[in-house]
Simulated assay, not measured.
Amino acid sequence: MDRRLKEHIYGKYKDCYTYRRRPLEIQFQETFIDVLQAIYFEKKIKKWTKAKKKALINGDFDMLQILSECRNATHYKYYGE
């Protein structure tokens, strides 16, 4: 973790997404036993909205649940209303 953060902070890779967004600071960190789970989780949260990411960072799991709910009219919660 420290090595990767330092690479981003010092701009080791100039074509990296974070290169022009420095300085960086860690907002959220999670520990995984399996590297594949970590990769899956990282890819998943990269697709989230900014509001969902903020809720995760703030530990506001109630808001995260609300933001994660499906709002389609065809969703089972709304079907038949």
Rank of each mutant, 00 (worst) to 15 (best):
M1Q: 10
M1E: 09
D2M: 09
D2I: 04
R3M: 04
R3S: 11
L5D: 02
E7F: 05
E7R: 11
H8Y: 12
H8D: 01
Y10D: 06
Y10L: 04
G11F: 00
G11V: 02
G11W: 01
G11K: 07
K12N: 04
K12G: 05
K14P: 00
K14E: 12
K14A: 06
D15P: 00
C16R: 08
C16A: 13
Y17V: 04
T18A: 14
T18Q: 07
T18R: 07
T18W: 12
Y19P: 01
R20K: 13
R21F: 01
R21P: 00
R21V: 00
R22Q: 06
P23S: 01
P23G: 00
P23Y: 03
P23K: 05
P23C: 00
P23L: 04
L24A: 01
I26M: 06
I26R: 15
Q27Y: 04
Q27F: 07
F28G: 02
F28R: 10
Q29Y: 08
Q29F: 07
Q29L: 11
Q29T: 13
T31I: 08
F32Q: 09
F32E: 04
I33N: 12
I33F: 12
V35I: 14
V35A: 14
L36N: 14
Q37W: 05
Q37S: 11
Q37C: 08
Q37N: 15
Q37T: 09
A38I: 02
A38D: 04
F41P: 00
K43F: 04
K43Q: 15
K44S: 13
I45P: 05
K46L: 12
K46F: 10
K47M: 10
K47N: 08
K47R: 15
W48F: 13
W48I: 06
W48A: 03
T49N: 08
T49Y: 09
T49D: 11
K50C: 02
K50L: 12
A51S: 13
A51N: 12
A51V: 06
A51H: 10
K52I: 00
K52T: 03
K53L: 12
K54E: 14
K54D: 13
K54A: 08
A55P: 03
A55F: 02
L56I: 05
L56M: 14
N58L: 13
G59M: 08
D60Q: 07
D60P: 04
D60R: 11
D60L: 09
F61P: 00
D62L: 14
M63G: 07
M63F: 01
L64S: 08
L64I: 07
Q65Y: 14
Q65N: 15
Q65P: 00
I66G: 05
S68Y: 08
S68F: 07
E69V: 10
E69N: 15
C70G: 05
C70D: 15
C70I: 09
N72L: 13
N72I: 03
N72R: 15
A73F: 12
T74E: 11
T74I: 09
T74P: 03
H75W: 11
H75E: 03
H75Q: 10
H75P: 01
H75F: 11
Y76E: 08
Y79V: 03
Y79E: 10
Y79P: 02
G80W: 07
G80Q: 09
E81T: 15
